[in-house]
Design a protein around this nucleic acid. Sequence first.
DNA 1: TAATCGATCTTTTTT
DNA 2: AGATCGATTA
Length: 756
Amino acid sequence: MCADALPKYLEILNPEQRKAVFHSGRPLLILAGAGSGKTRVITTKIAYLIREKEMDPRSILAVTFTNKAAREMSCRARLIDDRAQDAMLRTFHSFGAWFLRRNGHLAGLPSGFVIYDDDDSISLLSTIMEGSPRAEVKLMAHNISRAKDYFLSPQDPRLDFFDHRKIFKDSYVKYEERLAKIGNVDFGDLIKKPVEILRGNPDLARRFHERFRVIMVDEYQDANIAQFELLRELCGPGVYVCVVGDDDQSIYRFRGAEVRNILEFPDRFYGADIIRLERNYRSTDPILRAASSVVNHNTGRLGKSLRSERGKGKKPVLAFMADQDEESAQIAGLILNAVKLGGHFSDWAVLYRTNAQSLGFETEFLRRRIPYRVVGSLKFYEREEIKDALALLSFLANPRDEVAFRRMVNKPSRGVGPATVDKIIDSSGDTGDLAEAARNISPELSARARAGVADFLKAIEAGRDALAKDKKAEEKKLPRKREDLRGEEGLSLCVVRMAEVSGLAGYHLTQDEIAGNQRLNNLQELANAASPYSADMNGLLDFLEHIELDRSMEESAAAEGEGSDLVTLITLHNTKGLEFRKVIMTGIEQGIFPRDDKDGDDLEEERRLFYVGATRAMDELYFTSCAMRRMYGRNSPMEPSLFLRELDRDNLKIIGKAPYGFGGAPGTSGATGTSGATGAYTGGYGRSANPAATSSDGRWRKGDRVFHDDRGYGEVSGIRESDEGPVITVRFESGGESRFLSQYQSGSYTKIGGDV
DNA sequence: TAATCGATCTTTTTT
DNA sequence: AGATCGATTA
């Protein structure tokens, strides 16, 4: 094919991208740097195969890691050729769920299985490890989950790698037994079980090889071992496999991702070709240089040279702040100013390491009327009332669900205590049907417990009725109370009926006067979310599965339209695959980013996270670092992140009072040496433009002479008020500064010649 | 059996 | 600061 005869969608590709799209035959590894157009390559390749190679779209499987990525991929491929909608584009986990819905019986799964999230797993484990502290149960749950990521069964000797104790293996064995009895699966099972089924059923595997002729995996650097095994099982003779990834963007090691997968791809898929995409179309050169200068400190990379196609641009800005209040205030000011000059809010993204950090920005943005959205906070589905309602639905779907039963049988209180619950569960026999067991054993219970159990079963019956019967008739029969939830369409009636009959709605309403209404609203929202699903068992299972696998709540496509000029607040992890004109990476402090318990491989992962964050920026990049931060409810002094020292300094604009080692900033004293003091980070400037001359407790005045036991003579150079009282800054004659809280003056600092 | 109070930790990151 | 756990009390 010669270039000028190419259709437009192929013509716009650069030579390497085109090579990747046209490639066929052997396995292919595409090493795609940030912003090098890898999504374009995958989507184009899908369309190309359908259009030019007349491939049946149904025989193409493309796997991603997030639902968002899957949706975007589907959208973009369809823009080129609408037939791409018939290709299977899913996340690994949703592919696994799809697989198990059809073939789960081969592993003894009932058709109505429900997916347990981490909390459910912990609940189940805590009944197994009764009496163990919660932290221990959590650790065990984590290790079991990791074991499944590594495709290790309870008998595998390699489990010692995670935890060599006998209790670990025992717990894992029991956990698997209980899960099997219940008939549900956890996240890890969604990958592990399909592999086992494919291995145990060669005929089925063959049928899959005939069905899926082309398999593509995006973000391959984030695949775990189990996912690698799944990929291998799906790759039968003649199946074309193409994986795309960037070893520098591997940031999910903590949940089992193995960079090894991408590093060893050429060995595992023998004869693989490698294509590198190293032209970056997103960021200006200084931004790429900043990002690279940090990640270059990592060892064990495949290595690549990312070049900016955009060329020159503004230097990244590194701003030192006194504390997080100043951080959010300054950022708000920066954004408002840019908008005043004609920019958009949506140009901006504020990035942070932990979700908890979003709060400060939200408060400040609310106050200053800056419109924003918080991406990926899964709070909705973590709310108590929502989990309650979902547990009721889960139990309706699978009456063997012990976890859901335990959670809801006595909520609201119905006089069914732990003793009764155990009695019911013990009597359930091998069917495991707890609703049936409860009914059977009922005569043996005390009157109070019997009535309570009956009430619970009534709620489940109400749900079942809503599924089975004509919903219109059902709805009319019942006189509606003012505070009732509404739900007419599809599955929503089922949600509403269960929430009401169980007393859940009333319970949450009376439980807390202030929060009650909000909780009712949340339940209503859940009911609304259920309305598109059909009011039958399939609809119910669909709904539950959808909620477990995709909690991003990005349903409301309406909000995406115009009139949504919003600043994005987002964790660094969540930014993968996104881009913004202007990016602010906040809280770049030791202990936050990187966390200070990180070293070795973990530290390298943090560095890659830094790289991911920085390469999201197209035009402008900012870093902020605070001298003081409220953590665990108290103020603690912070040091600038190690990563800031690794940044290419000539390529940076530093503002604010820089700590030692960051030359060039205004206010940096010419002092040398820090006399071995731990506080490398001195300075930080006051919250207000005119710092106080006298501390609010009257104990210190600017210019006061001070003596410190270790550091000698100095003078008070600044006073600032914090919520723990005045913060006094002292500049020592020996050079260097330090700060302390007035209330903790202690013996180290002594005021000279003063009237203490 | 349930609710309340105080003490004791805690915090990654997500399918 | 907030959640969570355990013990104590009604």
